[in-house]
Amino acid sequence: MKTQDTILVTGFAQVPKGTTLYEIYKTMAVAMVINLKTEVIEDAEFTCTTDLMNYYLSDLVKGYDLKQGINPLLDTVKKHCIIPSQGALVQALRSAWDRYQESKPNR
């Protein structure tokens, strides 16, 4: 990964009360490394209660081409992540997407 060709984008969302994730973090966060030339997600990390969950989510989004828009990625996440904080996960990804879109005119 070459940092001159990438940007780091984050997104956050509140998780449901009563979940383990809420008790530990209160929010779901996603950090993604996006290649500016290809618009592909090169790496991603999530605030999770287990390493397995972080690995699974990261593997799910890595390699996704953001030129396709965010909705196909969100549909994939909804299909493959049956977790209590699914809504927060989707919102955190959408928040990161919005931040990425807002940064485009500044580049």
Rank of each mutant, 00 (worst) to 15 (best):
2 K>V: 06
3 T>H: 15
6 T>M: 05
9 V>H: 01
10 T>G: 10
11 G>K: 05
11 G>C: 06
12 F>Y: 15
14 Q>W: 00
14 Q>Y: 06
15 V>T: 09
18 G>T: 00
19 T>E: 03
20 T>D: 07
21 L>D: 03
23 E>T: 15
24 I>N: 06
25 Y>V: 01
26 K>T: 14
26 K>I: 05
26 K>L: 08
27 T>K: 09
27 T>D: 08
28 M>C: 13
29 A>S: 13
29 A>R: 15
30 V>G: 04
31 A>Y: 03
32 M>F: 01
34 I>R: 01
35 N>H: 09
35 N>Q: 05
35 N>Y: 03
35 N>C: 05
37 K>A: 08
39 E>Q: 14
39 E>I: 08
42 E>C: 08
43 D>P: 04
44 A>G: 07
45 E>S: 13
46 F>H: 00
47 T>F: 00
47 T>R: 07
47 T>C: 05
47 T>A: 13
48 C>T: 15
51 D>S: 10
52 L>P: 00
53 M>A: 12
53 M>L: 13
53 M>F: 06
56 Y>A: 09
56 Y>D: 08
60 L>I: 03
62 K>H: 13
63 G>P: 03
63 G>Q: 12
63 G>S: 07
65 D>E: 02
65 D>V: 03
65 D>T: 06
66 L>D: 02
66 L>C: 03
68 Q>Y: 09
68 Q>P: 03
69 G>E: 13
70 I>S: 00
71 N>F: 00
71 N>Q: 15
71 N>M: 10
75 D>G: 08
75 D>R: 08
76 T>F: 06
77 V>T: 04
80 H>C: 09
81 C>Q: 06
84 P>C: 12
84 P>Q: 04
85 S>A: 11
85 S>M: 03
86 Q>N: 07
87 G>E: 11
88 A>G: 13
88 A>E: 07
90 V>Y: 01
90 V>I: 14
91 Q>S: 06
91 Q>K: 12
92 A>M: 08
93 L>T: 01
96 A>V: 11
97 W>T: 04
98 D>A: 13
98 D>I: 14
99 R>D: 12
100 Y>H: 10
101 Q>V: 14
101 Q>T: 06
102 E>A: 15
102 E>F: 10
102 E>C: 07
106 N>Q: 11
107 R>H: 08
107 R>L: 11
